[in-house]
Design a protein around this nucleic acid. Structure first.
Lengths: 288, 288
DNA sequence: CGAGAGGTTGAATAAAGTCAACAAACGTGG
DNA sequence: CCACGTTTGTTGACTTTATTCAACCTCTCG
């Protein structure tokens, strides 16, 4: 794990990332975007027409495994994912990673750095990525001219906050099965939103990373995926996931406290002895 | 629980909250604050000198149990806690509460409403509270005159985001004991910051609410507090908590084997050595 | 004073983690 | 191209952790 870190060369965003870069805009494999395009990418409705082809934001490419920013590094720029997949992580006092998010197209990175002027998390490319740089100083200066920009920023940050709240709710309240199920559904919807198939896709992250994200061990993630496969909710082959029953996945939840438990007990009592499926999954679907 | 809800009258912030309210500012039991005072309260360094005694923000009082805003309610104002204690919660499809935070003096409420223009969480007063209203429209309009205001807002939102990231890390990675320990430490530090004792304080929330916040059951919270009390890390008497060993709480990872378990082990081994100390505390602190 | 909410504790149970063995895929250099 | 070591994923047996259910206690507060 450390070897990959040391083999990596820290990317310096202000340096030209590719040798053959031209100044100005380029249609294919584009290197610059204007404000309108950035807002579209973020799915944030931009109020006034901002015909700002003069105001361009540079793109930078990162290769799989490269770090976009590290914890404690001085904050100066925000990033928007134009293509590719990443993870953001916290690192605890003993070097253990805690995955916070898996940013992909249209997500913003680096917002956590604004407050203390240092990034509080680390972002790593899980695939080759194309990111748009938003130098924060430039952004705030720009806010003085394009007043609608501040609303864009508030919107993005608020959205991120709501996402994290949902995550807290999930970690605090849901069972392992429900977490994995919702993770898959959220991924599927995300892929759909990006124009890919929501029924068949490839995970870009390891079981370990999924487990860290969901507050589970990699074994629990693996077992849960196998269980979903066995009861026909999904198909699994390594990192290829096929969604077969999205509705069931959406409503799957923790065995609720009182009522379903009573049902379960009543059922097992009335059924008395013979249980045909000793290894059958505890009823995965919501009863309540 | 429902009875308190029904007995409550929805507060309308734009309406005068108390009958004897005077227009303008009032020194004792103040009803208005200027921008500088708001920034000080938020612990956000405000750049330029903003002598804006003309720009005043109204205070509103809420009584214990009252809701500040509810889920789905149209968003129009942010709140800053001037005094008192609150909780914010999500409510799942079956009415179960998930506590997200316990805001207190200097915290901002309502940021989650910006994105969708509707609050996505509910805020409830756990004690009588004094809140400062920041009408969002007014705030953004103000941003056009006082340009440093946007940095204040970015700072507050970023800080909140970092806090939630830390919460995700905690829920994803720590044991029940470690969560409770860190919760107590965080509370103590918060009280210290507000000028109260960090060694002896009163919890403003129930075990159930703490459990919801930490992703645990109320019984686990209760047991953990009792265990900490037994090994001398804290003193507990209902909601009164005394912190006796803050350092141990900060670095705690897991608890020593419980007494019943120790007994069980001793019995099974029965090495003829009579154990005089029932609860030795071997590697209580993090070894690795 | 009594009802009800909040809190503590114990015993049994279920959920998830740990440890371990193995298999499949990947990547690198001969 | 293949052999290899490494990383990733699966599965089983067992252990630990936290939950569930239940009983009981202690405060408030009408």
């Amino acid at each position: 794990m450390l070897s990959t870190q040391t083999s990596e060369i820290r990317s310096v965003p202000s340096t030209t990332p590719s040798p053959s870069m031209e100044a100005g805009r380029q249609r294919q494999g584009r290197l610059w975007s204007n404000l309108k395009e950035v807002c579209d990418l973020l799915h944030i409705p931009v109020a006034g027409s901002v015909n700002t082809d003069e105001l361009l934001f540079q793109h930078v490419q990162f290769k799989t495994g490269q770090r976009i920013h590290t914890i404690g590094q001085p904050f100066d720029t925000l990033y928007i994912v134009n293509s590719g997949f990443l993870k953001t992580v916290l690192i605890d006092e003993f070097g253990n990673e805690q995955v916070l998010s898996f940013p992909m197209k249209g997500d913003m990175l680096g917002v956590d750095g604004i407050h203390t002027k240092h990034y509080s998390s680390e972002a790593v490319a899980l695939s080759d990525c194309d990111l748009i740089l938003l130098p924060f100083k430039k952004l705030t200066a720009l806010g003085r001219i394009h007043l609608e920009l501040e609303n864009v920023m508030y919107g993005v940050m608020s959205r991120e906050l709501v996402r994290e709240q949902a995550m807290i709710g999930m970690l605090g309240a849901l069972s392992a099965e429900a977490r994995v199920a919702r993770f898959l559904v959220a991924l599927a919807e995300r892929f759909a939103q990006m124009g890919y198939s929501s029924k068949l896709f490839n995970l870009r992250m390891t079981r370990h990373e999924i487990g860290s994200y969901l507050g589970l061990t990699l074994e629990t993630v693996s077992r849960t995926l196998s269980a979903f496969n066995e009861i026909g909710l999904i198909s699994v082959d390594q990192r290829t996931i096929g969604i077969k029953d999205a509705d069931a996945l959406k409503t799957l939840r923790r065995l609720p406290p009182s009522r379903s438990r009573a049902k379960q007990l009543a059922a097992s009592k009335s059924k008395s002895s013979s249980e045909p499926h000793p290894a059958a999954l505890p009823q995965l679907l919501a009863a309540i």
